[in-house]
């Protein structure tokens, strides 16, 4: 090194005394980056396909110009007919009726345990260049690590993951996601929130990072452990879950009963235990008539 004078030495020392913000968590950055990479690869494939298709199409037009009207008519007919045929040929659907549980394995080795009254749909090319599926109802996912993100579409938004275990409960007014292992991204049209192990969030009109909760009980999700966990849950909602699980229906002798809230962990192995626990918690009587249970 050449000789430095005093001023240069001072500059040399001072220049290292900078306070810089500390770098963000690399794992989280990588997860975001990895998704962007997949999206950009997907866009690129689509563009290449279009480029490959474009020149022959032009040649086709110049050769067969007189017949172009037929081509257009045929094309239009195909456009309307294809999606229906295409959909039924390329889509796998699994569903559970009430009282029914089911475990299924996806082509990438991930497993899904479907709660009663739920449905999963995915394209047959799942795990080739995408891993996305649509669901309604409730399911517990154990996702294998893979090259493409695992995306779950619900009616109200989507959940994106790389490899992890978590529960998605999709109901009419919104959906709920809780994470047992790994990191999961939950998003709807306007927002997205990252969930870590042990966190859950409800996605409805009030979807916000502030509403992140810690999972407060060890046996999450409740239905996987034949439990029903209620925290200030309206009786109407509790009854809906029981209807789904045991295939019965409830009637309230007084409509105001539906607003009674229930708090506690209910053993859900058999119907009698559930009903007697709820009877105890709500201080109301149950009476059975066939498959209908009336609450007095």
């Amino acid at each position: 090194m050449k000789k430095l004078d005093d001023i240069q030495k001072l500059i040399w020392e001072r220049s290292a005394q900078v306070e810089l913000p500390s770098p963000p968590d690399k794992e989280a950055v990588w997860m975001r980056l990895s998704q962007h990479m997949d999206i950009s690869d997907m866009d690129k494939d689509i563009n290449q396909d279009q480029q490959r298709l474009a020149p022959p199409a032009q040649r086709f037009l110049s050769k067969f110009k007189p017949r172009i009207t037929y081509a257009v008519a045929l094309g239009l007919a195909l456009i309307f007919a294809l999606p229906i045929a295409y959909d039924s040929l390329t889509t796998e659907t699994f569903m559970t009726q009430t009282t029914d549980f089911r475990t299924l394995e996806l082509p990438d080795g991930s497993t899904i345990r479907l709660n009663a009254g739920s449905q999963i749909k995915y394209k047959k090319d799942f795990n080739t260049d995408h891993r996305s599926l649509a669901m309604t109802g409730e399911a517990y996912f154990n996702v294998q690590n893979g090259n493409t993100p695992f995306v779950i579409q619900t009616n109200q938004g989507q959940v994106t993951v790389l490899g992890t275990s978590f529960n998605v409960r999709s109901r009419e007014d919104g959906f709920e996601v809780g994470v047992n292992e790994g990191i999961v991204k939950v998003s709807n049209d306007s927002k997205s929130v990252i969930l870590h192990k042990g966190q859950m969030i409800k996605v409805d009109s009030k979807f916000d990072e502030k509403n992140l909760q810690n999972i407060s009980y060890t046996n999450y999700p409740d239905w996987m452990h034949e439990k029903l966990v209620c925290e200030q849950t309206p009786l109407s909602e509790v009854c809906e879950e029981i209807e789904r699980t045991f295939g019965i229906s409830f009637e309230f002798a007084n409509p105001s009963f539906s607003d009674i809230t229930v708090t506690g962990v209910i053993d859900a192995k058999d119907l009698n235990t559930v009903l007697s626990t709820i009877s105890l918690l709500t201080q109301h009587e149950f009476k059975f008539n066939g498959d209908t249970c009336t609450i007095f």
Partner: peptide, 15 residues
């Protein structure tokens, strides 16, 4: 080495 020396020269001049 040369580049660092050059940087210090520019810095001294500008400071």
């Amino acid at each position: 080495e040369n580049q660092i020396y050059r940087a210090l020269k520019v810095l001294k001049k500008n400071l």
